[in-house]
Every structure is written in structure tokens, then in C-alpha cells.
Design a protein around this nucleic acid. Structure first.
Length: 134
DNA sequence: GCCAACGTTGGC
DNA sequence: GCCAACGTTGGC
């Protein structure tokens, strides 16, 4: 079991949109590192849902329902998507500020590679963020 | 294959 | 709105 974090600008696609649809095909990723992370996702992996730009916080937990397949929004065979389903919205969101201030999370890929839209989260980091969210 | 120019992301 | 970080493109 692995853990991940995906970013979305809430004006484009928010947690509420995600819940309303009940699932999401994570399309439009056009970055090799982000794509490689999606290709490493296994069914049942857990994924933090993060709001970038507005909010700047981890808002909920999702799960990988379908492993990677070709991105239906492009003819280009290089790009793939995964399908995610919402699990739960957190009682307390975890802000970027909180995560940056926590020494235990200094290695978080979200912080170190701030532009990457799909990042891995270590088990220890996952547990810490989850504990801050409840 | 190098690197300057350019575009995009996202925090502030 | 600004700009740092960084990925991509294209000329050489």
C-alpha cells in the first residue's frame, strides 16, 4: 500500500465537485514525474486531495479505484490517468502552513517540489497528516 | 547535446 | 500581481 497527494485548484475542480460526481478521472496531467507517480499507483492506495492556490490545504481523502490507463482527453499515448473515488472530508483541513511548520514533514514532496501536481507521501508522513486532520 | 528563451505553476 | 522554481522548446 502506497500513499499519494494530488493537487487541484478548487476553482477548476474542487473537493465538492469530486464528491458530487462520486469519482474522478484524473486527466490533464502533462508532466512526466507526475505521470510516473500515477503509473505507480495501485488500486486501494490512499490519496490526499489538496487545494492549491485557494485554500492551500489538504481537504480530504480519496482512494485509487482504477490503475492507470490512457488519458482520454488526448491522442498522445504518453499520458495516462487514474480513477479516484472520495473516501471522506476531513474534520479539520491541514494547511500548507501547518505542514511547513512541522519538522516531521520537512521531507514532504509537496513542500520540496511545490509545482509537482501528483506527489508521493511516505507512510510516516501520511499518518502525521491524518492525525492533524482528525 | 548545450543552453537561452520562454511558459506554467503556485506560494506569497 | 509578482516572481521563484522548474519544465519544455528550439537554435546552434
Amino acid at each position: 500500500m502506497n500513499y499519494w497527494l494530488v493537487k487541484s485548484e478548487p476553482f477548476k475542480y474542487s473537493w465538492d465537485d469530486f464528491v458530487k460526481e462520486g469519482k474522478s478521472v484524473w486527466d490533464g496531467v502533462r508532466n512526466y514525474q507526475a505521470r510516473n507517480n500515477m503509473m505507480a499507483m495501485k488500486k486501494g492506495d490512499w490519496v490526499f486531495f489538496y487545494h492549491s492556490n485557494e485554500g492551500m490545504e489538504v481537504i480530504g481523502l480519496a482512494e485509487v479505484r482504477k490503475e492507470y490507463f490512457p488519458d482520454p482527453t488526448t491522442e498522445d499515448a504518453r499520458w495516462v490517468v487514474v480513477e479516484l473515488i472520495p473516501i471522506k472530508k476531513f474534520a479539520k483541513t491541514v494547511t500548507l502552513k501547518t505542514m511547513k511548520a512541522d519538522d516531521r514533514l520537512s521531507g514532504l514532496a509537496l513542500i520540496k517540489q511545490s509545482r509537482l501536481s501528483v506527489t508521493p507521501v511516505a507512510k510516516a508522513e501520511f499518518d502525521i497528516i491524518l492525525s492533524l486532520a482528525e
